Amino acid sequence: MEKKARKKKLGGYPGIGVVISITLALFVIGLFGLLIIYSQELEHQVRQNIKMQVYLKSNLTETQRLQIENKLLSMDFVNHGEGKGVAFFSKEDAAKKFIAETGEDFTQFIGENPLKDAYLVNIDPDFHSKSQMEKIKADLQKMNGVFQVYYVEGLIESVNSNVTKLGFILMGLIVLLLITVILLINNTLRLALFSQRFLIRSMQLVGAKRWFIQRPFLLRAATYGLLAGFITSVLLWSLSDYAQRKITDLALLHNQEHFMMLLGSLVMIGMIVAVIGTFFSINRYLRMSLDQLY
């Protein structure tokens, strides 16, 4: 017996190749997005740990020291977001830390502890420009009971410079990557719809409306985009979990909220790009003449 020819269904183009192509494209975007999350979290942690060291004069009373502390806490440049905005570090604690790190007790041959009591002031990231940091330093040095103010100037300039450069590089790569992904998905969908071109023309000849022809293709494209986004999310989740177990320090840079937003964005991007690419591909065949179809 002869096998019956399989009837083509409107919008029923093969989807495996389309799903694989969209998945690969989304996975590349996801890896790049994960890199952005880690770089932003690294910058955030570096900025959260930028502190100004305020050394106090010797022989201050407890009341005078607390007055300085309360004044520091009231400053608008102090970062109270994570941990203590102002932390006291006594000269005894400083001596113990130095002895523990070096193994040498300098107080035995000096006869006294020459170190100073100090406050570590966590500076809000909004005040990390060079001019603002210099102004803060100058204002703190004018306070009664303050001996010296110090911060790592090179670190601030390096962070600000690198963040600016990284921002431009990432924006350029994002634009280039999105264009490449859109073209890749669009070409894949166009090839997949090629086998449906005569069926589309047949529907036109029997009087089917443009939207009636487009609808099954767009619904299937949305389904493929959703499936590809889900597969990509699972792959990216598995890769991130594996990397964190292998590299323990990587877990410190993992922001779960931003990561979930990235996965959700990948699903949406998959659906939107698939639908838009299908829409323009179908319209191309709808406008073709019969000779062009061949």
Rank of each mutant, 00 (worst) to 15 (best):
K3P: 05
A5P: 07
A5G: 12
K7A: 14
K9Q: 12
K9Y: 06
G15F: 10
I16D: 07
T23R: 08
L24N: 00
I29W: 02
I29K: 00
L31P: 03
F32M: 02
G33P: 09
L34C: 00
I36R: 00
I37C: 03
E41F: 01
H44Q: 08
R47E: 15
R47I: 10
Y55M: 12
Y55L: 13
Y55Q: 08
L56P: 10
S58E: 13
N59W: 10
L60K: 04
T61C: 02
R65L: 09
E69W: 06
K71V: 03
L72P: 00
F77V: 04
N79V: 02
G81S: 14
G81V: 07
E82H: 14
E82S: 11
E82N: 10
K84R: 08
V86W: 08
F89K: 11
S90G: 10
K96R: 04
E104I: 05
F106H: 04
T107A: 02
Q108S: 03
P114F: 12
D117W: 03
Y119W: 11
V121C: 05
N122D: 03
I123C: 08
D126M: 04
S129A: 05
S131T: 11
Q132C: 05
K137M: 07
D139L: 11
V146S: 08
F147W: 15
V149G: 12
Y151I: 10
Y151G: 13
V152E: 15
E153T: 12
E153K: 15
L170N: 01
M171Y: 09
I174D: 04
I174G: 01
L178N: 06
T180L: 15
T180K: 06
V181H: 04
L184Q: 09
N187A: 08
T188W: 15
L189S: 07
R190S: 14
S195W: 12
Q196F: 14
R197W: 13
L199M: 14
L199F: 14
L199H: 13
L199V: 12
R201A: 13
Q204K: 09
G207P: 00
A208P: 06
A208Y: 13
R220V: 02
L226M: 10
G229L: 04
V234Y: 14
Y242I: 03
R245P: 00
I247W: 15
T248L: 14
L252I: 07
N255I: 01
Q256W: 08
E257F: 13
F259I: 01
F259E: 01
L262N: 05
G264F: 08
L266N: 02
G270W: 04
G270N: 04
I272W: 03
I272C: 01
V275W: 13
V275D: 06
F280T: 02
R287Y: 07
L290K: 11
L293H: 11
